[in-house]
Design a protein around this nucleic acid. Sequence first.
DNA 1: TCATTTATGTGCATGAATGAACAAAGAGAA
DNA 2: TTCTCTTTGTTCATTCATGCACATAAATGA
Lengths: 212, 212
Amino acid sequence: MEKVKIPRATAKRLPLYYRYLIILSEAGKEKVSSTELSDAVQVDSASIRRDFSYFGALGKRGYGYDVKNLLGFFKKILNQDTLTNVALVGVGNLGHALLNYNFKRSNNIRISCAFDIDKNITGRILSGVPVYDMSELKQQLSDQQISIAILTVPSLHAQKTADEMFEAGIQGVMNFTPIRISAPANVRVQNVDLATELQTLIYFLDSDKQEH
Amino acid sequence: MEKVKIPRATAKRLPLYYRYLIILSEAGKEKVSSTELSDAVQVDSASIRRDFSYFGALGKRGYGYDVKNLLGFFKKILNQDTLTNVALVGVGNLGHALLNYNFKRSNNIRISCAFDIDKNITGRILSGVPVYDMSELKQQLSDQQISIAILTVPSLHAQKTADEMFEAGIQGVMNFTPIRISAPANVRVQNVDLATELQTLIYFLDSDKQEH
DNA sequence: TCATTTATGTGCATGAATGAACAAAGAGAA
DNA sequence: TTCTCTTTGTTCATTCATGCACATAAATGA
């Protein structure tokens, strides 16, 4: 599937559009306007139209967008037509929760293997996912052709574990540790920093308060 | 504590700086330069200097920043000198994980109560946190003077539950559901959309691949 | 058929964020 | 003290993102 050069901000919104298109489709809606969608996803309607327009003229003036059309289109753009397997590294509290998180339903993503160092959980199958010892990382990722991993180990092991992952050929990391791991230039790291987000929320609330 | 008007992007980085300052302090470092910090937090050094400068001239030319000074300063800015209590609404997989997540160590945030509708877990104490029935939401939040909540209920109940929270006086929500909840104008909502982030990562990886 | 309404696609102006570059200030050495 | 070196604080140019506003095109109804 040939892809156009899309602004970063747009690319971040695509999965959101996709999810709401699924909802609309399941609700039996045939068409949708940028204004309707705007209400649902809370993005300005002009931004939505521009986002869509990067892929060509997908809508019809005076009508809106055909839901089925749009859905099929985004499915291809977002590689939703093929299942993406990812690895989970670190099966602690958060890791466990993610194992049970249903990425598959609206995203066609599946955690197909997990890794840990704790002998009590390695060698077993948790929530339908086999848990291997870290020593098997390279072999398994290679066998299963996995290039994306979710990192949920304790901070202390974050960088060391990340290095092992890069060694094993990981190209993209979703980093749940509070450490900013350093990675080779060709690797994408997406940080999800729970404590920081919460604290930012608190900060903004306080400054809201002071304005009034 | 009087606060200056800070750009959004800067405010988002403050907790990150704070965390690394703690690490530096614990490692016994007395001073730090913007360049050193830049390596650690992966933010351009000029941006760091500018971020700091919003609060006044905190550094010394030719020397850098005094770690203890800076730390004390950020502690106040970020309200780290007082404990912030938050509520957790929805004790499923993710909720459980968050109950065990240590927000307190470097952020002085504590989940002090949780809510659910499942009679099997309400009325009990999980990971040191009491779990109440949803019917007690308003009373408890009022008693404990809590204005921030983490929302981890199933998508289907997201909006309805959110409405109850607003009714109970919640001012800030960290929304882990994939639904964009609609909220009163004075309420801040921070969305943490795991599936979307993962999918965005996949999208960027694919477009990286196509460039080469 | 023709007028009216609806909703797209895009030009434009504005604002935010970034990072390079550098003058100024202070630290440290001689 | 005086010189050199380091590192800040800030200016500036650039890029990115946003949302208004509107011309254009299609749909709908009379």
